[in-house]
Design a protein around this nucleic acid. Structure first.
Lengths: 136, 136
DNA sequence: GTGTTGACTTAGACAAAGTCCAAGCTAGGA
DNA sequence: TCCTAGCTTGGACTTTGTCTAAGTCAACAC
């Protein structure tokens, strides 16, 4: 995570306490917090941090490619710090738990030319759904 | 579409003018309207229909399995009447156009047992992204 | 170390999407 | 034709996210 902050600094980011805290909150595997959850955890480390700053910082991290935005349920977007390892998501239909997964093969290969409607197809996001061990 | 209404009636649905209009608006291929778009089109046929009724009706159609809810961008959910033919979506990254597509093979086969984390995996949604013919 | 400055942060107003509720209406059965 | 459970309505409310004007401060120059 400190390398993340260093990477950002070399890209001209001003390293503020707020940004540091948001980056720390997002550290880890299988982390998929909503902006509000990030804010709640950030507040416990830096009580005066505002919602606007959390939204700003998350948006910047997404633009910089350091964090992925995941919107799987039409509710709040979730932020996934595992942006440097291509992966997909497996979500429990009952409790909402999200795991990062790595399917084999290239999903684009399954889409034949005449199913592409003239699009230049560049990527695919897969959401697997099922019941987690705790929910079945 | 009239068979849809008939199907719903045999399941105990009261066939009101409002529900009829919502069902009519959703008829067609590659239809992916937001609730607000459905409402706007419904109003042009039945001016007094309320937003709440459109939301209620769409929600019921989803529960009954007649319509799919698609949330691909974290903005408004879209409603897809093509629920009886399994399919995935191809979305233009610039203009947002959505097409129904039919990839070959079973996406679940790409997820090995030890990548399932003990989940009972039951399905997968794939969102392909790219630029449509008009946008490149 | 000190000063400067533009980038950053803040609180709160605002907006979009969706849910909920009490009151009134009506489709379809008796 | 009447009755009533189920449907619809408008509006208040909630959640999620964006915007703005004013104040603050990280990083650079000296």
């Amino acid at each position: 995570m400190s390398d993340l902050l260093e990477r950002l600094r070399t890209r001209g980011w001003r390293l503020t306490a707020q940004r540091r805290v948001v980056a720390e909150v997002l550290d880890g595997d299988h982390v998929h917090l909503t902006a509000d959850e990030v804010h709640a955890r950030a507040v416990s480390r830096l009580p005066e941090i505002s919602r606007a700053t959390v939204y700003n910082t998350l948006g910047e991290l997404v633009i910089l490619g350091e964090v992925l935005e995941v919107s799987t349920d039409g509710r709040a977007k979730r932020y996934d710090p595992n942006a440097h390892h291509s992966h997909q998501h497996l979500i429990c239909s009952r409790c909402g738990t999200i795991r990062d997964v790595h399917p084999v093969g290239d999903p684009l290969a399954a889409l034949s030319a005449d199913e592409r409607f003239g699009f230049a197809v560049s990527g695919a996001e897969i959401t697997y759904r099922g019941l987690c061990p705790d929910c079945h």
